Simulated scan of single mutants.
Amino acid sequence: MSFLTRILPSFLVSWLLTFTLASLFHSQYVVNQLVNVGVVVGFSDRASLTLDDWLGLLPTYGAIIVVALAIAFFVTAKLNKKVQKYSTQLFVIAGIVAFAIVLIAIESIMNIHIIAGARGWGFYAQLLAGAVGGFAFSQLVKATKTQKSC
C-alpha cells in the first residue's frame, strides 16, 4: 500500500515537473536559436510554441522520461537503503544520469538528436530538468513519509 499512497503520487508529480521543465527548456532553446539567426519571436508566439511543444512531446518524450526516471529511481531506492544519509543527492544524480543515458543512447543509436533542444547548452538544461525531478521526488517521498508517521 505504501507504493500506491506514497511512492506513485510522488513519482507522478516529479515526472510531470521534470517533463514540463525538459519541454520548456527544449522550446526556449529552439526559440533562442531562431532569434540568433534574426527571426523575431514575440511573447505570444513563444508561449504558443511552448504549449504546442509540451503537448506534442508528451506522448513520446514524456513516455521516455517516465521509463528512464522509473528505472533510475528504482535503482536509487535500492541503493538508498544502504546509504540513507545521501538520499537527496542520490536521487538528484539519478535524474541527471537518466537524462544523460537517454539522450546519449538515442543519439548514438539513431544518429540524431531526438530533442532539438538537447544540443549544445540545451543538453545541460535537459540534465538540469532531470536533477530537479530527482530532487522533487526525494523531497516528496520524505514529506509523505513524515506525514504518515505523524
Rank of each mutant, 00 (worst) to 15 (best):
T88I: 14
A72W: 01
Y86S: 11
Y61S: 05
T20C: 06
K81A: 13
F25A: 07
M110D: 12
V13N: 09
T50V: 09
I112V: 14
A94R: 00
V132W: 04
A72M: 02
V97G: 05
Y29T: 12
A63W: 00
A118N: 01
D45R: 07
I106K: 06
A63L: 14
S87L: 03
L127E: 04
F43R: 06
Q126M: 10
I104L: 15
M110L: 09
A47G: 10
A125W: 14
G62E: 02
G120F: 06
I65R: 03
I109Y: 13
T60W: 08
K82P: 03
A116F: 04
I101C: 08
A68N: 03
V97P: 11
V92G: 02
L49Q: 10
S108A: 14
F99E: 01
L49H: 15
Y124I: 07
I109P: 05
A98V: 03
V40T: 13
T76A: 10
I106V: 13
Q28S: 06
I71S: 02
S23G: 15
V67R: 02
V66G: 09
I101F: 13
V37Q: 11
G117Q: 07
A98H: 12
A131Y: 00
A131P: 04
A131D: 01
L49Y: 15
F43M: 12
V132P: 08
Y124C: 10
R119H: 02
L24C: 12
A63D: 00
P59L: 02
V39F: 15
E107N: 13
S23E: 01
L17T: 15
Q33T: 10
I71V: 15
A125Y: 08
L103N: 00
A136D: 00
I64T: 05
Y124S: 08
S14W: 01
G117L: 11
G134L: 00
A63F: 13
F25M: 03
L49N: 10
Y29L: 02
K78L: 11
D53T: 14
V30K: 11
V67I: 14
G134W: 01
V41T: 13
E107H: 15
W121T: 06
L24N: 11
A77V: 02
G120T: 01
L58E: 07
R46T: 06
G122I: 00
G95K: 01
N32T: 10
I112M: 07
A129K: 02
S87K: 13
G120H: 08
L103H: 04
G38D: 05
W15D: 02
F91M: 02
T18S: 08
I114E: 06
T50P: 12
P59D: 01
L51R: 09
Q28H: 14
L58W: 06
W54E: 03
H26Q: 08
I112T: 12
F135P: 10
A22T: 03
V102M: 07
G117W: 05
A136Y: 00
V83K: 05
V30W: 14
V35I: 14
D45E: 11
V31L: 15
A118S: 14
V75G: 04
L57C: 07
I112R: 09
F74G: 05
G62W: 08
G62N: 05
A98C: 05
N80R: 09
V75M: 15
V39A: 15
T88M: 05
M110R: 13
A72D: 01
F19S: 05
S14M: 03
G133N: 02
